[in-house]
Amino acid sequence: MNSSRRIKLQVFRVVVFVVMGAFFITPLIAMFEFSTRGNGENAPRTLEAWASIFKTPDMVDAITASLQLAAITSIAMLILLLPTMVWVRLRLPRLNRIVEFICLLPLTVPAIALVVGLRPIYVWININVTDSILALAFAYVVLVLPYAYRSLDAGLAAIDIKTLSEAARSLGAGWLTVMWRVIVPNMSSAILNACLLSVALVLGEYTVANLLNFENLQVAIAYVGLVSAGTSVAVALASLVFAFVLLMVISFIGRRRTPSLAAAGTDPQYLTAGQRT
């Protein structure tokens, strides 16, 4: 590659970076600008809207509920989906298509239609089991299936799961050990990605919660927006930044755990100890 071409490529990269960066960051800056506006014509900048997040009691409850829902949904999704997918791949490959179809189905059903179906079930759950907002996790596990499936599917495709599990089995490992000590560590980044997508989806979910009369984060933001636009924008921005920070942390953890990047000279005793925990 000659130097003028390299410079052109470099310029192109910078231009793409700047344009995309501006595209993503402009709304965020606008949100921040709006949420710090004072009342009146020439009022000074104020963080009142941000402070009032914590003064709105419903808001704090909604944030807690949404975070709990995100955690429960991610864990339930993993417990449900990962062993199923591994089992189907190893033992029932003919069912692969069917499982994929079922998992991708929620993507094609509009949330409104889904709620119509979920409504009677939730009426029953509310009366007979619990009226806690955490019951929404049932619906959310279904909603995140397509995204989690795609992510886990890519992770499973990247490792020779059949040979690895057979090797572990012949070394004396039961299925739980195979799962926990061989398969999960080798697709940790895919699992983290699936969790991240689930968290992002749950934190941003509005339709189902609203139509089932639960107050999660987005519903609360919408309500607050009716009274104080500044506060609702502040909460929305905070949840976006939170998701962004989470993404950074997760991708950092995922990269750190890739064996090829781990130092070859590291004392194996430390590595063994780390893996056992």
């Binding site: 040979t163 690895l164 089995r169 064996p259 194996p268």
Partner: peptide, 29 residues
């Protein structure tokens, strides 16, 4: 089951656990 037979097997395809070092692979069993 395969995990109860105590048969050492070397597979045709590469079967080392990618997230473990050589020592850890040998220690696994």
């Amino acid at each position: 089951g395969a995990n109860k037979r105590e048969i050492g097997m070397v597979f045709q395809a590469y079967s080392l656990f990618p997230h473990m070092t050589a020592t850890q692979n040998v220690e696994f069993g």
